[in-house]
């Protein structure tokens, strides 16, 4: 019964322009005002996360023409938004999951898997919508990081900017400048 209901939900993804509002059932003993309108007699007691439903529905039902502008760029990579998940992924989705965080572009993945780039972009986007992945820019140049850490002086009010891996052309900023800037902004604005 629940599966049949899901089939109907999946078909909603064929609608080209719509807005849906999902309401959660409270675990409170009292029925809330919004819950009074729920179709209780049709409900089976089973539940599924909206993100899982969207991922599954987008595999079969979605008209991707409407999301052309939302597609991740071909030169972008993917990063994981969560460490673990309990989604049942298809082979291509599993591949994208496993290659995430590795600075590989979607174009390269398409070449390696010999799958059309468009299909890779669509799969990536459905996983982005499901909250599993996010699109990231691929770093083309050596990574340079700047870190700021707590100043060693106990008198200091500010963390000190200490460059770790970055080139030396970025000078430190003194606590004096930061304090003077605060005073300046408070006085003049």
């Amino acid at each position: 019964m629940f599966q049949l209901q899901l089939e109907e939900v999946n078909k909603l993804f064929t609608i080209t322009s719509a807005e849906f509002k999902f309401e959660e059932i409270n675990n409170e003993p009292q029925v809330s005002s919004s819950e009074k309108n729920f179709p209780w007699e049709e409900m089976t007691g089973k539940q599924k996360k909206a993100t899982k439903i969207s991922l599954e529905a987008m595999r079969d039902y979605f008209n991707w023409d409407y999301l052309k502008e939302k597609m991740p760029f071909r030169n972008s990579g993917l990063n994981k938004l969560v460490d673990k998940h309990d989604f049942q992924l298809l082979p291509l989705e599993t591949y994208l999951w496993n290659t995430a965080n590795s600075n590989i572009s979607l174009r390269k993945i398409a070449q390696e898997k010999q799958v059309p780039l468009e299909k890779i972009q669509q799969t990536a986007l459905s996983m982005i919508f499901a909250g599993l992945l996010e699109e990231v820019s691929i770093i083309n140049m050596p990574m340079k990081t700047t870190k700021y850490s707590i100043a060693s002086s106990s008198k200091s009010n500010f963390a000190d900017i200490n460059n770790t891996n970055i080139s030396n052309n970025q000078p430190k900023i003194s606590n004096s400048l930061l304090s003077n800037l605060i005073a300046f902004l408070r006085k003049h604005f």
């Binding site: 990231v136 770093i139 990574m143 990081t145």
Partner: peptide
């Protein structure tokens, strides 16, 4: 927002500054 998010991720990948 998507563009802003992309900028945010881009910066976070490269530097850790205020």
């Amino acid at each position: 927002f998507r563009g802003a998010r992309r900028i945010l991720t881009y910066i976070n990948q490269r530097v850790q500054i205020p």
